[in-house]
Computed example of a mutant assay.
Amino acid sequence: MNRAIIVKSLIASIGCLALFAPRPAAAQIIPQPWVSVGAKDGDVTYAVGARALNLGVELGTGEDGATGVDVLKFLSLPVISPYVGVGYYSEDKGVALSGGVQVKASDRLFVGAGYNSVRGVNGQLGIRF
Rank of each mutant, 00 (worst) to 15 (best):
N2I: 09
A4N: 12
I5D: 13
I6K: 13
K8V: 11
S9G: 15
I11Q: 10
I14H: 00
G15P: 03
C16E: 11
L17M: 13
F20M: 08
Q28G: 09
I30Q: 05
P33N: 00
V35S: 07
V35H: 00
V35Y: 01
V35G: 15
V37K: 05
V37L: 12
V37M: 10
V37G: 10
K40Y: 11
D41Q: 10
V44Y: 08
V44T: 15
A47I: 07
V48D: 01
R51I: 12
L53I: 06
N54Q: 10
G60T: 04
G60C: 03
T61V: 11
E63R: 09
E63L: 09
E63Y: 09
D64N: 15
D64I: 08
G65D: 06
A66M: 08
T67C: 07
V69E: 04
D70R: 03
D70F: 03
V71C: 00
K73Q: 13
K73R: 15
K73W: 13
K73Y: 12
L75C: 05
L77D: 04
S81R: 13
S81L: 02
P82W: 02
G85R: 02
G85Y: 00
V86A: 15
Y88S: 10
V95I: 13
L97I: 10
S98R: 15
S98P: 00
Q102W: 07
F110K: 02
A113Q: 00
G114P: 05
N116R: 03
S117I: 01
S117G: 03
G120N: 06
G123W: 01
G123M: 08
L125I: 14
G126D: 04
R128G: 04
R128S: 11
F129S: 03
